[in-house]
C-alpha cells in the first residue's frame, strides 16, 4: 500500500511538473493574467479609488464580494472549533494553591469548590511556576503589539497590510497573554461570549456596509454611494469604505483566532492551557 502511494505521488508530481512547462514566464507581459484586467487595475485604480496600495484596492473594492466570504470562512473556522471542541462539563479534580504558604491542594471531590481570591488561586495540572521576567516582558510588549496591529489595519490603504494581517497580529497578542500568564487570565479578562459576539460583529460590519450601499441606491459594496453619509472630500469615499470594511475583517479575525486557540489548547474546557 505504501509502495502504491509512493508511485501515485511520483506520477502526480511528474504531471504537475510537466504542466508547469506550459506556464508563461514570470512577469511575462503577454501572459493571460497581464493582458485582460491587470492593465486596468494598474492604470486606473488610484484614479478610481484614491487608494495608493493596489492590492488593497483590488481586495477590498474590485473584489470586495470575494473578501466578504473570506471573512465568513474565518468566522466559520472559529465557529467550527467552538462547536466541535467546546466542553461544558467541569473537570472532576482540581488543584489550588494557598497563596501565603505555597501549599498545593488537590481536590478530588467535584462538588467541593474553593473560593478563588486572595487566599487560594487556581493551578494547572501541569503547572510551571510563572516566570517573572517572561511575565514582565510580555506585559510591556503586548500594548505595543496591539497598537501595531491597529496601525496595520488603519494603514492598509497606503502600505502592505489590512484587516487579515492586523487581526491576526491582534489575536496573537491575546494568545501571548494566555501563554505568558495562563489561559485563565485571558478567559477572565475577555469573556467567551464577547469573543463570539465580536466574531459575528466583524462579519456584520462588512455585510452592513454593503447593505447600506444598496439602500443608498447603488450596487452591493459600491462605496461611492456612501458619500452623502460621510462628511469630507467625496473623492476619498472609496478609501473610507475600504477602511470600514477592513476594520470589520480585523475584528472578525481577532475574535476567531482567540476562539480557535482557546478551544484547541484547553480541549474546549477553557480552564488550563500551554
Amino acid at each position: 500500500m505504501r509502495f502504491l502511494g509512493f508511485i501515485i505521488v511520483c506520477l502526480t508530481g511528474a504531471l504537475l511538473l510537466y504542466g508547469t512547462g506550459e506556464f508563461p514566464d514570470w512577469g511575462d507581459p503577454n501572459s493571460p493574467a497581464s493582458i485582460h484586467l491587470s492593465d486596468h487595475y494598474i492604470e486606473k485604480a488610484v484614479e478610481e479609488t484614491q487608494v495608493p496600495n493596489l492590492v488593497t484596492a483590488v481586495l477590498a473594492d474590485y473584489r470586495g464580494f470575494d473578501t466578504m466570504f473570506e471573512t465568513a470562512v474565518v468566522f466559520c473556522a472559529g465557529l467550527a472549533c467552538f462547536l466541535l471542541l467546546r466542553d461544558f462539563s467541569q473537570k472532576k479534580e482540581r488543584f489550588y494553591r494557598h497563596t501565603p504558604t505555597g501549599v498545593i491542594l488537590h481536590v478530588k471531590d467535584s462538588k467541593k469548590i474553593l473560593k478563588v481570591g486572595k487566599e487560594f488561586e487556581h493551578m494547572d495540572k501541569d503547572w510551571v511556576p510563572s516566570d517573572l521576567i517572561i511575565k514582565t516582558v510580555c506585559r510591556i510588549l503586548i500594548p505595543f503589539i496591539q497598537i501595531y496591529a491597529m496601525y496595520v489595519v488603519a494603514h492598509g490603504d497606503f502600505s502592505p497590510g489590512g484587516g487579515f494581517q492586523g487581526g491576526v497580529i491582534f489575536g496573537s497578542s491575546l494568545i501571548l497573554l494566555a501563554i505568558s500568564y495562563d489561559l485563565k487570565t485571558l478567559v477572565r479578562r475577555v469573556k467567551e461570549k464577547v469573543f463570539g459576539i465580536f466574531a459575528a460583529l466583524g462579519v456584520l460590519i462588512y455585510v452592513g456596509i454593503g447593505v447600506i450601499c444598496m439602500f443608498m441606491g447603488g450596487n452591493f459594496l459600491d462605496y461611492s454611494r456612501l458619500a452623502p453619509l460621510v462628511p469630507g472630500d467625496p473623492h476619498h469615499i472609496r478609501a473610507l469604505g475600504m477602511l470600514g470594511v477592513e476594520i470589520g475583517v480585523g475584528i472578525a479575525v481577532t475574535a476567531a483566532m482567540a476562539i480557535i486557540y482557546i478551544n484547541i489548547v484547553s480541549e474546549g474546557r477553557h480552564d488550563e492551557g500551554l
Binding site: 487579515f164 491576526v168 496573537s172
Partner: peptide
C-alpha cells in the same frame, strides 16, 4: 503573520 506566527502556535497547541 498567519503562516509563521499564528498557525505554528495552533500546531503546538494541538500537539500539546
Amino acid at each position: 503573520s498567519v503562516g509563521a506566527g499564528v498557525s505554528t502556535v495552533f500546531f503546538v497547541a494541538a500537539v500539546f
